[in-house]
Design a protein around this nucleic acid. Structure first.
Length: 270
DNA sequence: CGAACGACCTGCAGGC
DNA sequence: TGCCTGCAGGTCGTTC
């Protein structure tokens, strides 16, 4: 489910409730995720204090005094805070219990997610090659243009490569390309600097809008069921194949790019 | 080396 | 009702 805004919203929702707390115990019901959960994880984090919770791309980094727990939500993963005695349901694979009687529960039907322990996140192979965060200043049109030189792959695949930029998934790649008026199949190396500047701006605006929406959703977070709740930004083209283009009313088209569904307007995006 | 593809999983909607 | 197919917001490891 989650792309960068959802992961960030999840982080902001859970962090205040568990930062500085100490892990009392953990419960692993299903260790087989994308990779097996790190063996003897309990030995690593039991009795340890959670110092910080940060994000790199779509990876959540739970920073303890002695190392970092890396959590990825895959396609269908969720993290929720619950009372310690909450009823367990199907796909509730992992619980981490904290000293303030809160249970952090990882639920993931498809099990594409990951939970891994590392002593040095800075050099971890999953993190070390991730590109710039899209909401920082060093991600901009010039960076994209420069990095795309000579590349023939479709701009959409280029954008969804986490080595190029962190956290852009199928939805936001689709939406940003529509906003920027760029055809998703256009070879990355054949797009002008000016158009890349427009694209970088579109990415930043869309992500910020989604974050704001997530922040609004978060208001219910502590009050209701303890779930950050997934939210859906009003999407202009994603999931709207055959509907009229919001700009020109031409029916939106849809095609597969690298096996991912892609919606676009053949008139507005060139 | 970069780019394309397969693989990992479950759940759901739609067609027959 | 049941079976089959295709689809889903990710991305690493392998192959070409």
């Amino acid at each position: 489910m989650p792309e960068l805004p959802e992961v960030e919203t999840c982080l902001r929702g859970i962090a205040p409730h568990i930062i500085q707390q100490i892990v009392t115990t953990i419960m692993i019901r299903h260790a087989k995720l994308r990779w097996p959960i790190t063996a003897h994880l309990e030995d690593k984090i039991k009795g340890k204090q959670l110092k910080k919770l940060t994000r790199r791309g779509k990876y959540l980094l739970f920073q303890f005094e002695n190392g970092v727990l890396i959590v990825h939500l895959g396609m269908s993963g969720k993290l929720r805070l619950l009372p310690i005695d909450s009823k367990v349901q199907k796909h509730d694979h992992v619980d981490i219990y904290f000293s303030n009687n809160i249970c952090l529960r990882f639920t993931d039907p498809r099990r594409f997610g990951a939970i891994l322990w590392t002593e040095s996140a800075a050099s971890h192979p999953l993190l070390v090659e991730i590109g710039p965060e899209p909401l920082t200043a060093n991600f901009n049109g010039k960076y994209l243009w420069h990095t795309a030189k000579q590349k023939k792959l479709p701009i959409k695949s280029f954008l969804m490569n986490s080595k190029i930029v962190a956290g852009i998934g199928n939805i936001y790649a689709t939406e940003a390309l529509f906003e920027a008026g760029i055809h998703p199949s256009k070879p990355a190396g054949k797009i002008s600097l000016v158009r890349y500047q427009k694209l970088a701006t579109a990415i930043k605006i869309i992500l910020k809008k989604a974050l704001k929406k997530g922040g609004t959703t978060l208001k219910d977070f502590t009050k209701s069921d303890g779930s950050p709740g997934y939210f859906r930004l009003e999407l202009k083209v994603y999931g709207r194949s055959d509907e009229p283009c919001p700009n020109c009313k031409t029916p939106l088209k849809s095609k597969k790019i690298a096996k991912r569904s892609t919606v676009y307007c053949s008139r507005c995006q060139v």
